[in-house]
């Protein structure tokens, strides 16, 4: 299946008394790795939840397109994989039990599961830990397991909310390698991060601050536009 494209059109969202998103419009072209950067409280998680169909925008809309055709939110949800920022796995279930659970949840046939799980376990180096409970994994391994669970369905749109937060530098590198291994023509990746150095690894960067979209472009375009090599300067100049 080809990669899924998404367009956020002027969405606003209030979370309680606070306004998390204020008229944000962003274009996520299919088949690319998009990075959403911004400090804490910028509205990244709210935006990701809107893209995952877990929050409804108060104003505006999210439009999904597959091969140039508009797709309903319900259909898009079936081919979207989302891994939240907060711990969201079952601490008492082992890695393999998680994979089997998501296999049945996504209705993946046994032969496809065998191939994909073997490939994912090898790529993440998690094969020796397949029987270990998620609650007993290190931070990096926990994130890798989460990523494996959502990648098992070969989603056309992969949403990763701060997957590298609290992860050691080596595991961060491995996670990025994994993302690039699967990203491409059949998978669009949208990843949020508050590590500015990770923005350079994305094909397109979207800067978000205080619920507003500040800028979007390739890393080179943003460097040229803001005359800086450090993406943090975008927010400092805006402040």
């Amino acid at each position: 299946m080809p990669a899924l494209g998404a367009e956020v059109k002027n969405i606003s969202k209030k979370m309680g008394a606070a306004t998390a998103l204020r008229g944000v419009s962003l274009q996520f072209e299919s088949g690319r790795v998009h990075g959403i950067i911004g400090p804490n409280g910028a509205g990244k998680t709210t935006l990701m939840r809107c893209l995952a169909g877990l929050l409804r925008a108060d104003e505006g809309e999210v439009v999904y397109s597959l091969d140039g055709r508009r797709l309903s939110s319900a259909r898009a949800k079936e081919i979207t994989g989302y891994f939240p920022q907060e711990p969201s796995l079952y601490p008492d279930l082992s890695c393999m039990e998680h994979l089997l659970f998501f296999r049945d949840l996504y209705n993946i046939n046994r032969s496809d599961f065998e191939t994909r799980s073997r490939e994912l376990l090898a790529a993440t180096g998690m094969a020796p830990f397949a029987a270990r409970a998620a609650g007993k994994l290190s931070g990096g391994m926990y994130k890798k397991l989460g990523l494996m669970c959502v990648l098992l369905n070969r989603p056309s749109l992969l949403l990763l909310d701060e997957p590298t937060i609290g992860v050691d530098p080596l595991s961060r590198r491995q996670l990025w390698d994994l993302i690039y291994k699967f990203a491409g023509e059949s998978m669009t990746v949208i990843i949020t991060t508050s590590y500015m150095d990770e923005a350079a690894a994305c094909a397109k960067v979207h800067a978000l601050d205080e619920g507003r979209a500040l800028a979007a472009g390739t890393p080179a375009e943003l460097r040229a536009r803001f005359h800086t090599d450090n993406f943090a300067d975008i927010f400092l100049q805006n402040g």
Partner: peptide
């Protein structure tokens, strides 16, 4: 949150 992001 993870469960609800699936088609369940």
């Amino acid at each position: 949150e993870l469960l609800l992001s699936t088609p369940v």
